[in-house]
């Protein structure tokens, strides 16, 4: 349910090498050009947007692997 909002955040903060609209929900974001520095911007933007704080156990590449993975993490945090 958070996929569209995450897509919007990815478009404005993701600076990916591929067009976000062409990415499927399970596409690998690292393959699409996600770098560690962009991940930081993305993390901060998602935290601000949803007013949540990612706990340390969610700070891993797996959480940022795909739009699906991010949506799942946000869903857990928003509750």
């Amino acid at each position: 349910m958070y996929h569209d909002q995450i897509r919007n955040i990815l478009t404005s903060h993701g600076r990916l090498s591929k067009d976000v609209t062409e990415l499927s929900n399970d596409a690998d974001l690292y393959d699409a050009g996600l770098t560690s520095l962009i991940t930081v911007n993305l993390l901060l933007a998602i935290e601000d947007h949803f007013d949540v704080e990612f706990p340390d156990e969610l700070l891993s590449r797996r959480t940022f692997q795909s739009i699906d993975a991010l949506a799942e993490a946000v869903e857990d945090l928003v509750g």
Binding site: S36, V40, N41, L43, F54, D56, L59
Partner: peptide
């Protein structure tokens, strides 16, 4: 900072 948590974790 806060973003640094992510950098530390992925490193």
């Amino acid at each position: 900072g806060r973003g640094g948590r992510m950098m530390k974790a992925t490193q």
